[in-house]
């Protein structure tokens, strides 16, 4: 068979599956973001209101603007944090030897844990009366003894990010360990012979070699951070105040507690648009010659 046909044939099943599933719901959601669809008044979308929903979001709804800021804070913190955490783990555990391979066994577990279980558990762990995290932290850092971990904006956001990092960091590290171990040992050897310290060889040899994997990990994590919902829902409920109310959580609130599906869709599409822009910029920066495809 000729490549000319083969290349499309190979791609076809995946493209068909994805488009067949996504086109309808996505199109539907896209259309209702331009419509008035309040479930409390009607079972089906009613009037075409053009940009009203988007106008309301940007010019008439401080809560939405707040959620935009919260989302950006969270994404920056958790994507950066998780990749850094992953890199740290990878550097520690990317060695040969039985002990290391047993230690690595642990890395899939946090990722495999259902966010529902993790979110609920972490909330208990942070309880100032019978939470294990609270107890341990109070013992290690007595000056933090009276902190109500989810009761102030700063700490609530910090724990949201830490929770997400705990889930993702180890998984990302698995990707990075693969990358680290595939750096030819003679390259490192050569650097050592040249008298480079571990520190300089990390910057000059390891990091550049690792860059493609790091980039993928970072983009992947950014997308998931933008979409993160479970931990806000389970840990903080967007609070205190609206200090951890991300866009996904706000869209959920508007759709499922305020019954306003039109507005919820509009918020979701703003988020999607934001993601398209951010990813496009990433792709440009990371793969300047368009080699990412």
């Amino acid at each position: 068979m000729r490549d000319r046909h083969l290349k499309y044939l190979l791609m076809m099943p995946a493209l068909l599956l994805v488009t067949a599933t996504v086109i309808y719901p996505l199109g539907y959601a896209g259309i209702i973001s331009f419509m008035d669809w309040r479930l409390s008044r009607s079972r089906v979308p009613t009037d075409f209101v053009f940009l009203d929903n988007f106008w309301r979001a940007f010019f008439d709804d401080p809560s939405f603007l707040n959620s935009l800021g919260v989302t950006i804070t969270f994404v920056a913190g958790s994507a950066g944090g998780a990749v850094l955490f992953g890199l740290l783990i990878a550097l520690l555990l990317a060695r040969r030897g039985r002990g290391y391979s047993i230690a690595r066994t642990v890395l899939v577990l946090p990722f495999a844990m259902s966010p529902a279980l993790q979110g609920t558990s972490f909330r208990f762990f942070l309880n100032p009366e019978f939470g294990i995290f609270d107890a341990v932290l109070d013992t290690l850092f007595p000056f933090l003894a009276h902190v109500d971990w989810l009761g102030s904006s700063g700490w609530a956001m910090t724990w949201l990010i830490l929770t997400d990092m705990w889930h993702w960091g180890p998984f990302l590290s698995l990707m990075l360990i693969g990358g680290l171990l595939s750096i030819p040992s003679d390259t490192l050897e050569a650097a050592r012979v040249d008298g480079a310290s571990a520190w300089t060889s990390f910057w000059t040899v390891v990091l550049p070699q690792l860059m493609p994997v790091l980039a993928i990990a970072f983009v992947l994590k950014t997308i998931f951070s933008f979409k993160m919902f479970d931990y806000v829902y389970l840990l903080t409920g967007g609070g205190p105040g609206e200090s951890t109310s991300t866009m996904t959580y706000y869209a959920f609130r508007m759709g499922f507690t305020a019954y306003d599906m039109g507005y919820a869709s509009a918020i979701a599409f703003v988020l999607a648009l934001l993601l398209v822009v951010v990813s496009a910029v990433y792709f440009r920066l990371l793969f300047p010659r368009g080699e990412a495809g």
Partner: peptide, 13 residues
């Protein structure tokens, strides 16, 4: 990009 829209909004469609 099909994954950019949060599930919460497409779940009803």
């Amino acid at each position: 990009a099909t994954q950019f829209v949060p599930p919460i909004v497409v779940v009803l469609p």
